[in-house]
Design a protein around this nucleic acid. Structure first.
Length: 119
DNA sequence: CATCTGACCTAGT
DNA sequence: AACTAGGCCAGAT
């Protein structure tokens, strides 16, 4: 079974956790990776999200940015649904491809997701 | 088949 | 502060 199927635990966890990010908040590739027990695999998180367009239920991949709050994945979004516009529509301020007040907007899955799920 | 690339990050120098 | 190396691993070359 190849690793890009629904069966892959890493992939499954990335999608599940990303769906848990509240509207108006953002988290990071590294935070997701750490939270699902693959601390070094932040690059893979991006790869999984890149395959998540059009999935049902939807995956709010625009809520995942890099550690500095930069919208490093922006170029992979469709022109009619750009990453920065999607964030602004949720009340997240973005200037020059960067989330303003990143520390305030940051949603930490280690705190807000794992604890809730008693991991 | 080998090597490089990338929606990244940490640790070490 | 500015590097570098290493780790992850699917696709592309």
């Amino acid at each position: 079974m190849s690793t890009h199927t629904r069966e892959d635990p890493f992939r499954r966890d990335v999608l599940e956790l990303t769906r848990a990010i509240p509207s108006g908040r953002v988290t990071t590739y590294g935070a997701i990776a750490r939270s699902i027990g693959s601390a070094q695999a932040s690059r893979r998180v991006g790869w999984v999200l890149n395959t998540s367009f059009g999935m049902m239920p939807p995956v709010p991949a625009h809520r995942v940015v890099n550690r500095q709050g930069l919208l490093t994945g922006a170029m992979h979004f469709p022109d009619d649904c750009p990453m920065d516009a999607s964030l602004r529509a949720e009340g997240v301020e973005v200037v020059d491809g960067k989330v303003l007040e990143f520390e305030r907007v940051f949603w930490d899955p280690m705190v807000e997701w794992n604890m809730e799920h008693e991991i």
